[in-house]
Amino acid sequence: MPSARLLDVSRLVSRAGRVLTGVDRVEAAYLRALLAAPEPLFGLVRTPLGYLLLDEAGLRASLPALVAGADWGRAGPLARLTRPGAPERAAAEATLRRRAIARAPHARLASLLTRRLPHGTACLLVGHTGLTEEALSAMKSVPGAIVTAFIHDTIPLDHPEYCRPGTAQRFTEMLAATAAHADLILTSTGAAATSIRRRLPVPLPVRGVPLGVDLAPPEPLPDGLSPTAPYFIAIGTLEPRKNLGLLLDVWEELAERPQLYLCGTRGWENPVFFARLDEAPAEVIERPGLTDGQLATLLSGARALLMPSLAEGFGLPAHEALARGVPVVALDLPVWRESLGDRPVYLRESDAYQWRASVSALAADAGGGAPPYEPPDWASHFKVVLSMT
């Protein structure tokens, strides 16, 4: 076992004041699990002024705000200057600066870590934003350190057309830095592991370990949200690869339109789709910002989760839906076949008739449901991960 562990929590800090989504929730699960492990835990936070190092006490004090949305307090003048327009993140970094056991400018991160971390520390990076030459080389400079990177998928390289400009180049640089300094790469599926191995500039161990699925307890829906059965739901950032324009096409052609809830914030490179949403298509309702508990309530009452995504990493909403007995309708992707088998209803993107027919059939079937499904759990995930890191 390692003498200690270091977890980069910069991504969680960057989400201050916002609802956690896919990768954020994975980093949150790692923080909880490593705090429960017997080895001492340190946390690393990247800020505009440099890096902050927290010990286990600092991480425990910050846990409610990092993973459950508790208030970070107010930011001081310096924090507000470094994060203009982002008051919650500024407040988070100000609070963490006070709780840090050490700080260092960017160029001195290696010196900070070698002075403060025990020999043989296991370093883990779960959010892609931390996979930089600067951070990885500094971690590797700690004597006896084992560096593990979690790469969730290779979508920026497989489908650059769905990403922000420059994302593919940054991802290529991330892979190069990871290959140069990491000892192990983790990912969530065998399909992703195969793609990562193919993309690495040098051989490196890559292990696919399914993510755990947390089922949040239902919470009352917010005022003004009163779904009318039958209704359908799509969950996730409204970005190009989610292919949600297909659902608008389907809804336009339905003779009887049930409600369709789009639960996610608006993303990037999607102006045509956003323009269509701004025209308020009939029975299509945008609801960003719902809590996990509110999403659980809305999802549990839906006739189906609709996922016309053109690419997915792990797809936590599909696992959650099936675990709650809610059918999933999706495109036939390798990631779904690997992790969900024949449980979803698979349709072709080009078959608009089948999409309309499936929605109409599900809307009319009040007694239908998904086949039984026991989702993967975090205990199994960390049993594997902690044995390797």
Rank of each mutant, 00 (worst) to 15 (best):
E161L: 08
E161V: 09
Y162R: 09
Y162W: 15
G166E: 01
G166L: 02
T167Q: 13
A168L: 03
F171H: 11
T172G: 14
T172H: 15
E173W: 12
T178E: 06
T178W: 06
A179Y: 00
A179G: 04
H181T: 08
A182Y: 06
L184G: 10
I185C: 07
T187H: 01
T187W: 09
S188P: 06
S188R: 05
S188Y: 00
S188A: 12
A191R: 12
T194W: 04
T194M: 09
T194R: 14
I196P: 06
I196E: 02
R197V: 11
R198P: 00
L200F: 04
L200W: 07
P201V: 12
V202T: 14
V202W: 13
P203Q: 09
P203T: 11
V206R: 10
R207F: 12
G208W: 07
G208L: 12
G208M: 11
P210R: 13
P210K: 14
V213P: 03
D214Y: 06
L215D: 00
L215C: 00
P217L: 13
P217V: 14
E219V: 09
P220K: 09
P220F: 07
P220W: 08
P220Q: 10
L221M: 06
P222L: 12
G224L: 08
G224W: 01
T228E: 12
F232C: 03
I233A: 01
I235A: 02
I235Y: 05
I235H: 02
G236H: 00
T237I: 01
T237N: 01
L238S: 03
E239P: 06
K242A: 01
N243Q: 06
N243F: 04
L247P: 02
L247S: 01
D249Q: 15
V250M: 01
W251G: 07
W251M: 09
W251H: 02
E252F: 10
E253R: 13
E253Q: 13
A255K: 14
Q259E: 15
Q259R: 11
Q259D: 12
Y261C: 09
L262F: 05
L262I: 09
L262P: 02
C263I: 05
G264V: 06
G264T: 08
T265W: 10
T265C: 01
T265K: 12
R266Q: 10
W268K: 03
W268S: 03
W268Q: 00
E269K: 14
E269H: 13
N270M: 05
V272F: 09
F273N: 07
A275N: 08
L277D: 03
L277M: 11
A280D: 15
A280Y: 15
A282E: 15
E283Q: 15
I285A: 03
R287P: 00
P288T: 08
P288V: 10
G289Q: 02
L298F: 04
L299G: 04
S300W: 05
S300F: 00
G301L: 08
G301H: 07
G301S: 07
A302K: 02
R303T: 03
R303H: 05
A304W: 05
A304D: 00
L306E: 02
L306S: 04
P308W: 03
